[in-house]
Simulated assay, not measured.
Amino acid sequence: MQEFIAASSNSKEILNSAKLLQAVNIHALIYGETGVGKKTLAKFITPDAKVFTCYELQKDISQKVLDINKQTIIIEKIEELTNIDLLLSWIEENEIRIIATTQAKKLNQKLNDFFSITLSIPPLNQREDDLKLLTQKFSNEASKVLRTEKILPSKLMLNTNKNAHSLRKSIYFSYLFETVGEDEILMFLENYMFTNLQGENSYKDFLYLFEVPLLKAAKKKYKSQVQMAKYLGLNRITLRKKLDTHKELL
């Protein structure tokens, strides 16, 4: 079973609440973005519970093929439920306890009223200590799986847009990138462009693939626009235009 990492203060509070839920038989909802650990926390609360998606559970209830009574189950993405009354009736008839996860900030009022408690898990960028531990964990994992020496933390490219999901992927990519040279980078770009070439403005459409990473690297390395312009060999007006053009990606 995966461990719900709780080193940050807000995560510790959530874990304490989860421990209380292990001892009380109430329905609970776990809210959070993709990759914050909702399913892991649900399994921490009730390790032996069967996990259902809304679609498969609703289908099984409708077809009356479930033989579950006086048990706890985990339902993922409860916001995708389309027949709330069917589920609530089945739960009552069979004395089922529900631990559900959701990415939706708002649920149907019947579902809101059904759950006795909601645990909200913040994204990783609000859990600094958790992020550090997860980074170490995924780095150790990548080193072992790929059979290579651990790389320096400063060389890890960390993407937390989808929390642990994107973090793990970016760390694995960091390890793979250590073996990649210019030839491989050019090959990747060529294959990507070959697959996606279309229309009459392809040069302009694909220019960001070169400019965005170069501008991001320059911002990180040189700090000021004066220094960026100097070392990129651009005048400051041209640089500002490029920064403005790509501002959503920078």
Rank of each mutant, 00 (worst) to 15 (best):
M187Q: 12
Y208E: 09
E178N: 08
S202E: 07
N191C: 10
M193E: 04
N201C: 07
F210C: 08
L209K: 06
L209A: 04
F194A: 14
F194P: 15
F188I: 09
K216H: 06
L214M: 06
P213Y: 00
E178R: 07
N191F: 09
L207W: 03
L197H: 11
V180M: 06
F194E: 15
G199Y: 00
N191W: 12
V212Q: 02
M187G: 12
E190V: 14
P213M: 00
T179Y: 13
E182M: 04
G181V: 14
V212I: 10
L186D: 14
Q198C: 02
Y203C: 05
E182G: 04
E184I: 07
E211C: 07
M187W: 04
K204C: 14
F194Q: 15
E182Q: 04
T195H: 14
E200Q: 06
E200C: 01
D183L: 04
F194K: 15
E190W: 15
Y203K: 08
T179K: 11
K204N: 13
L186A: 13
G181A: 08
T179W: 13
Y192F: 14
Q198N: 12
F206S: 04
F194M: 13
E190K: 15
Y208N: 03
G181D: 06
L215V: 00
Y192C: 10
S202G: 08
F188R: 06
L207F: 09
M193V: 06
Y203T: 08
N191D: 11
Q198A: 08
F206D: 06
T179R: 11
F194V: 08
P213N: 05
E182H: 09
E182R: 05
Y208W: 12
E211H: 05
G199T: 00
L215T: 02
Q198Y: 03
L197N: 04
N196H: 05
V180H: 04
E184Q: 09
V180F: 08
E178S: 03
K204T: 13
I185Y: 05
L207A: 01
L207T: 02
L215I: 01
L186K: 15
F210E: 02
Q198I: 08
L209R: 09
N191L: 13
N191G: 09
L186Q: 14
L215W: 03
L189T: 10
L186E: 15
I185W: 00
Q198D: 09
E184R: 02
L186C: 13
K204G: 11
E184G: 03
M193I: 07
E182W: 07
L209I: 09
V212K: 02
E190Q: 15
L215M: 07
N191P: 11
N196I: 06
E211P: 01
S202P: 06
V180S: 04
L214S: 04
K216G: 09
G199S: 01
L197Y: 13
E190R: 15
E190G: 13
E182P: 15
